[in-house]
Design a protein around this nucleic acid. Structure first.
Lengths: 153, 153
DNA sequence: TCAAAAATATAGCGCAGGCTATATTCAGGG
DNA sequence: CCCTGAATATAGCCTGCGCTATATTTTTGA
């Protein structure tokens, strides 16, 4: 019952370490950029929706406290994605808008893909929020193709 | 060129904040449990492959330093997933084996799904490492169904 | 057998990203 | 016009998860 071949990986005899490590590295890197993309995408959404992006609204949507948002905005400012004036709303730079557009496009494709696959809209929306950051260009292209072939509204 | 309706979210008028926050919360929670699953799955793989899981091998596969692994193992020990004796290898508890089996199953399905979708095996393996943790039960079921219908070896 | 090499344990540091508490500034209504 | 409430800024703390450096223990081979 506990011989290795049963509890281990029967058919996959463990990929070689170098490739293995590469996968994990990629996942870690994705985790690092996740937040940046989420913020930028959200800011762009808020500006598009109400004309401005306030810290309280960002905080409310992300489910974090306002100082957390403030700290992150400072980082985004340093990274050149947003511009902010003290006690005023936050705006996206050109780079920020590009990143937002790209993130939204990926998000949109992933969400639609899941829907086209038969996943409920609610679940699709929630899963897409996590999945989008781990989808490579190649996989994204496969998603897009699938959506176009099937009923991707 | 910069009127809100163009750079914002044209068709999606922003989902309500409560649902929005729920998606992000789910993504954050997934991030928290990612590492635990990766470790447990890898440990199970190593034990299945070579009969033992040593810190150096875990470190080499994850691409992190050995003390990082040691620290995480301590946490996994406290959480009841692994058992370790000083200066000896690490073993999975019953709970650890269950978690490993579940994680591997998800991983396997996601990877095969991507392959069935036409993604190259190499990319599938790498993307699966990140995606697997963000796939809900419903989406996983959709993946499984798709694999069974199409060429899922 | 025992010294060197390998593996593990431990100490201590840094950064990211959460939080609360509090100060400061802005915007509106008396 | 000023006063109050809302928003933002700032300080300080915690935890998670990386790292290096080093001590300890085990393993190994001459």
């Amino acid at each position: 019952m506990q011989e290795p071949s049963e509890q281990g990986a029967p058919e996959t005899a463990l990929v070689d370490p170098e490739r293995h490590v590469e996968s994990f590295r990629q996942a870690r890197e994705a985790r690092r950029s996740e937040l940046v993309e989420d913020y930028v995408e959200l800011i762009d959404d808020l500006i598009g929706d109400g004309g401005e992006a306030r810290q309280v609204d960002i905080a409310a949507r992300l489910g974090v406290a306002q100082p957390t948002v403030a700290k992150m905005l400072k980082r985004l400012c340093e990274d050149g994605f947003v511009q902010q004036r003290p006690y005023r709303g936050v705006f996206l730079t050109e780079a920020g808008r590009r990143l937002a557009a790209q993130a939204r496009e990926r998000h949109r494709i992933v969400e639609r893909f899941l829907c086209a696959l038969g996943v409920s809209p609610e679940t699709a929306r929630r899963d897409a929020e996590g999945i989008e950051h781990h989808v490579s260009a190649e996989t994204l292209e496969a998603f897009r193709t699938f959506v176009e072939r099937h009923g991707g509204t």
